[in-house]
Amino acid sequence: MHITVNEEKCCGAGQCVLLAPDVFDQRDEDGIVVLLTPRVPAGQEAAVHEAVAVCPAAAIEVRA
């Protein structure tokens, strides 16, 4: 599975970081999402899908 993030849509809520801290981080200067890896690590599929679901700005996409 391949992850993409949209920095323009991101509102820095940090929900993805809470759910999948090995995949998502936030820039120190403005809280905008940083993708730590574009591939979903093994065992993190559910957490990444949950991050997609709860992202308030719909800024995360996952493709097979």
Binding site: C11, G12, G14, V17, D28, D30, G31, I32
Partner: peptide, 15 residues
């Protein structure tokens, strides 16, 4: 909205 909100987001990140 995003331009103004981003003035403040750094102080409220998870970290």
């Amino acid at each position: 909205h995003a331009d103004r909100r981003r003035v403040y987001t750094a102080d409220f990140t998870v970290k």
